[in-house]
Simulated scan of single mutants.
Amino acid sequence: MSLKQPTETRQAALVAAALALAAERSPATVTTAELAQAVGITQGAVFRHFENKEAIWLAVIDHAHHTLLNRLQTAASAHATPLPALHAVFMAHVDFVVEHPGVPRLIFQELQQPHDTPLKARVRRLMHDYRLLLTRLLQQAQDQQALQPGTDLQAAAVLFIGSVQGLVMQSLLSGQVGAMRVQAPVVYQLLQQALAAPRHTHSPQETP
Results as ranks from 00 to 15, higher is better:
residue 27 P to W: 02
residue 98 V to I: 15
residue 14 L to G: 01
residue 50 F to G: 00
residue 37 Q to A: 15
residue 146 A to P: 02
residue 55 A to W: 03
residue 38 A to N: 04
residue 120 K to Y: 02
residue 154 Q to M: 08
residue 28 A to T: 06
residue 33 A to R: 15
residue 4 K to E: 15
residue 61 I to G: 01
residue 48 R to L: 15
residue 50 F to A: 03
residue 165 Q to M: 14
residue 63 H to F: 14
residue 123 V to P: 01
residue 62 D to T: 13
residue 208 P to V: 12
residue 36 A to S: 11
residue 175 G to S: 13
residue 174 S to C: 09
residue 31 T to L: 04
residue 142 Q to E: 15
residue 17 A to Y: 01
residue 189 Q to N: 12
residue 152 D to L: 08
residue 104 P to W: 01
residue 18 A to W: 03
residue 155 A to G: 06
residue 49 H to R: 02
residue 102 G to A: 05
residue 88 A to N: 06
residue 56 I to G: 00
residue 160 F to Y: 11
residue 95 D to S: 09
residue 30 V to H: 00
residue 189 Q to A: 12
residue 100 H to E: 12
residue 138 L to F: 06
residue 120 K to Q: 11
residue 17 A to F: 03
residue 168 V to L: 03
residue 21 L to T: 05
residue 76 A to F: 03
residue 1 M to D: 11
residue 175 G to H: 00
residue 65 H to R: 14
residue 20 A to S: 14
residue 45 A to E: 11
residue 178 G to L: 07
residue 65 H to C: 09
residue 125 R to A: 13
residue 125 R to L: 14
residue 177 V to T: 13
residue 70 N to W: 11
residue 11 Q to L: 09
residue 171 S to F: 06
residue 32 T to R: 04
residue 206 E to L: 15
residue 4 K to S: 14
residue 74 T to L: 13
residue 65 H to Y: 14
residue 162 G to Q: 03
residue 187 V to R: 06
residue 148 Q to F: 07
residue 51 E to P: 03
residue 34 E to V: 09
residue 131 R to K: 08
residue 126 L to A: 11
residue 166 G to N: 03
residue 56 I to H: 02
residue 195 L to P: 00
residue 125 R to S: 09
residue 196 A to E: 06
residue 174 S to F: 08
residue 107 I to E: 08
residue 151 T to I: 10
residue 66 H to V: 15
residue 29 T to Q: 12
residue 40 G to A: 07
residue 22 A to Q: 00
residue 55 A to Y: 02
residue 177 V to E: 00
residue 193 Q to D: 12
residue 106 L to W: 01
residue 35 L to E: 01
residue 173 L to Q: 12
residue 200 H to D: 10
residue 98 V to Y: 10
residue 52 N to I: 05
residue 198 P to C: 10
residue 45 A to F: 03
residue 12 A to K: 11
residue 30 V to N: 00
residue 38 A to R: 14
residue 38 A to P: 02
residue 115 H to V: 15
residue 10 R to G: 04
residue 77 S to T: 14
residue 104 P to K: 04
residue 20 A to G: 12
residue 56 I to K: 03
residue 124 R to M: 12
residue 107 I to G: 00
residue 6 P to L: 10
residue 173 L to F: 12
residue 84 P to N: 07
residue 96 F to E: 06
residue 199 R to Y: 13
residue 109 Q to F: 06
residue 183 Q to F: 11
residue 139 Q to R: 15
residue 121 A to H: 12
residue 131 R to E: 13
residue 23 A to P: 04
residue 195 L to E: 00
residue 60 V to R: 01
residue 38 A to D: 05
residue 87 H to E: 11
residue 70 N to I: 07
residue 82 P to H: 10
residue 62 D to Q: 12
residue 24 E to V: 14
residue 5 Q to R: 15
residue 89 V to E: 02
residue 162 G to S: 04
residue 98 V to E: 04
residue 54 E to P: 01
residue 14 L to W: 01
residue 27 P to E: 06
residue 52 N to Q: 08
residue 141 A to N: 02
residue 60 V to N: 01
residue 52 N to K: 05
residue 116 D to P: 04
residue 85 A to M: 10
residue 143 D to W: 11
residue 33 A to F: 10
residue 93 H to Q: 15
residue 102 G to I: 03
residue 12 A to Y: 00
residue 37 Q to Y: 09
residue 90 F to M: 01
residue 8 E to Q: 15
residue 143 D to C: 04
